[in-house]
């Protein structure tokens, strides 16, 4: 068990004015539970790919440190560009549905990240470089620069890449598919 204190309580005085503390109790997943989730996630993903008539193999890997995933599955094979899709949209859809399916079956929140032949890693490097390049030009010109719309996981990479960059801030603006990060000069 892991206990997270959301709000500290107060003892009060003579039984008056006391406040209850609010805590969240998380059940930490054991390694056996994680392994069971990995097996299920792999099976479900294999079936999804075969129903999509994509031949590929799936391998479990160590989740990247920067992400929040508990399970990381890598898809390899020939002709997988179709699985990534425009701006990684197909890959995101596949990952989201897999997450819902596994979560529903296990009645638990199991974050699963899937990648196709190192796409996410390459994309992450490209996004970091983009963020730093744009931040430099924002500092030079003082003009805010909106980036193209991105899914939440990619916006997060931009925010994290610039959180310690002096003089610029990042903001996400827009709804749903159109949500994008804008980089602007602080103050």
């Amino acid at each position: 068990m892991e206990v997270v204190v959301l709000k500290e309580g107060k003892p009060g005085f003579l039984g008056l004015g006391g406040e209850e503390a609010t805590v969240r109790v998380l059940r930490r997943q054991s390694e056996e539970e994680r392994q069971a989730a990995v097996i299920l996630a792999k099976e479900v993903l294999e079936r999804l790919l075969s129903l999509m008539k994509v031949s590929a193999s799936i391998e479990e890997k160590e989740p990247p440190e920067e992400g929040r995933a508990l399970i990381f599955l890598e898809i390899t094979g020939d002709d997988l560009g179709i699985l990534i899709g425009r701006r990684g949209q197909t890959l995101s859809s596949l990952q989201y549905l897999l997450y819902l399916m596994v979560g529903h079956q296990l009645k638990a929140h199991v974050p699963v990240t899937i990648d196709v032949a190192g796409y996410r890693e390459r994309r992450q490097e490209a996004l970091k470089n983009l963020a730093w390049r744009i931040a430099e030009s924002v500092m030079a010109t003082g003009q805010p620069v909106p980036l193209e719309p991105m899914p939440a996981s990619e916006r997060r990479i931009i925010h994290l890449a610039l959180q310690d960059y002096p003089g610029v801030i990042t903001q996400s603006i827009g709804e749903g598919e159109d949500r994008k990060v804008t980089i602007l000069k602080q103050g």
Partner: peptide, 19 residues
């Protein structure tokens, strides 16, 4: 929420349809 699930299913269907 905001049609996200049905939209994701449509995206996967497009892969098969394209093939």
């Amino acid at each position: 929420k905001q049609g996200r699930v049905v939209q994701a299913m449509r995206t996967l269907l497009r892969v098969i349809a394209a093939k």
